[in-house]
Nucleic acid binder design. Structure first.
Length: 172
DNA sequence: AATCGTCGTTCTT
DNA sequence: AAGAACGACGATT
């Protein structure tokens, strides 16, 4: 068995969507990272040299799931997710995030309580920001306690867009 | 609106 | 190996 796949580089695959080209990073265990489209123009033309080393169904599942999520629809199924690359605490947060259903939200504080770290709301925010698979691991469903959006590492526009498509309303 | 408590992570010694 | 600094926070004043 591999001693620690953490250092091994991920196999990168470009995912073209109607919202731009995302970059998926796969480990031996599944999807480990998802990068958003580059800001201006400059699409991802990457040669994806190692694409053939990634199971085709993982790629297909990722594409389909991403496509669904970007349209506010719950994916029928997800590719295997490899969330093993974070700290223990981050792992708990990322796991908890996956239990928030479409159309629902939690506050950072509520999420903290859910993982039994009731006073760690702020740290939870940090872990959300470190979420390696945004969108599929729905960190956009976490709002601030005052009903406002809170932050989003990929830019608040994405958070607004995703939540709107999921029918969620928030405070300005 | 300003301040302070809290806690995991990251940067500095 | 500590300690300081830093946030996608929250409660208080």
């Amino acid at each position: 068995m591999e001693k620690h796949s953490s250092l091994r580089p991920l196999q990168e695959v470009v995912l073209k969507t109607e919202f731009g080209a995302f970059l998926a990073g796969f480990s031996d265990h599944g999807l480990a990272r998802l990068e958003f489209p580059e800001k201006k123009g400059r699409g991802r033309t990457a040669g994806a040299p190692a694409e053939h080393q990634v199971p085709a169904r993982w790629v297909r599942a990722t594409e389909a799931a991403l496509q669904a999520m970007l349209n506010g629809v719950t994916p029928a199924r997800l590719p295997p997710l490899d969330l093993s690359r974070g700290t223990k605490f981050q792992g708990r947060v990322w796991t908890a995030l996956q239990t928030i259903p479409r159309g629902k939200t939690l506050t950072y504080g509520a999420l903290a309580r859910r993982i039994r770290s009731s006073s760690a709301a702020r740290a939870v925010g940090g872990a959300c920001g470190a979420n390696p698979i945004p969108v599929l691991v729905p960190c956009h469903r976490v709002l601030a306690a005052d009903g406002r959006l809170g932050g989003f590492s990929q830019g608040l526009e994405w958070k607004r867009s995703l939540l709107t498509k999921e029918g969620v309303r928030w405070a300005d």
